[in-house]
């Protein structure tokens, strides 16, 4: 069973339906016990960093997620689900993150008028490393992004995919059993569904 962790409410339907469409046995949950029992975790997130961290604490989800990651349970983070893995975010902060991956989350600094924030839309990525969740990956694939902040891993070797929006930024990371992407695979049509299918089958 794959647990989609409902940290802050909001619309998790797209993630749920996309995983189900590629054969995932999914449950959307905010119950720490369900998270503890899950074979795999998906942590999607939208909105701001601080309320998301508060949601983890209030719902008692922080410890079960930490334990699962430590036990080697496959973790797929999406958008904020990537950002909260890091030590801290600049967003209305600094705000402390989970600290599971060394590094920070910073705001885009647009160099000119044509670079708009939030970074919203389809952007090409470049691969820095092969990954089991990117089978048959073709360089230059477009994924759908919506965000104003991006992660800067302390160890550049963590970066699996990068993209460019006024500056080159981290689009996906791998740290052992943790894979997390800044883009939304559930909104990235064929390319996104392929990633989710690989996660379901992994």
């Amino acid at each position: 069973m794959i647990a989609i962790v409902d940290v802050c409410g909001g619309n998790l339907r797209s993630v749920e339906k996309a995983l189900a469409a590629v054969g995932g046995d999914v449950v959307v949950t905010r119950d720490p016990e369900v998270v503890r029992r899950a074979d795999k975790l998906v942590v999607p997130g939208q909105g701001a960093f601080a309320p998301f961290m508060a949601g983890l604490a209030e719902r008692g989800l922080e410890a079960p997620i930490r334990d699962a990651v430590a036990r080697g349970v496959p973790y797929l983070g999406i958008c904020l689900g990537l950002q909260v893995l890091f030590d801290e975010s600049e967003e209305h902060g600094p705000v402390r993150g989970l600290g599971l991956v060394p590094g920070r989350v910073v705001r885009f600094v647009p160099p000119h008028h044509d670079i708009k924030i939030p970074h919203m839309g389809w952007n090409r990525v470049s691969a820095h490393a092969a990954d089991p969740l990117l089978p048959g990956y073709v360089d230059g694939t477009h994924y759908y992004f919506v965000h104003s902040f991006h992660a800067v891993p302390a160890d550049p070797a963590r970066v699996v995919l990068s993209s460019e929006h006024g500056e080159r930024f981290c689009a996906a990371i791998r740290a052992d059993n943790v894979f997390a992407c800044q883009f939304h695979p559930e909104k990235s049509q064929r390319a996104g569904l392929a990633l989710l299918a690989a996660f379901v089958q992994s």
């Binding site: 339907r13 797209s14 339906k17 996309a18 469409a21 759908y144 559930e186 909104k187 990235s188 049509q189």
Partner: peptide, 11 residues
Amino acid sequence: VERTAACVFVP
């Protein structure tokens, strides 16, 4: 919208 979001995976 509900039925569309269940099967369409673009924004």
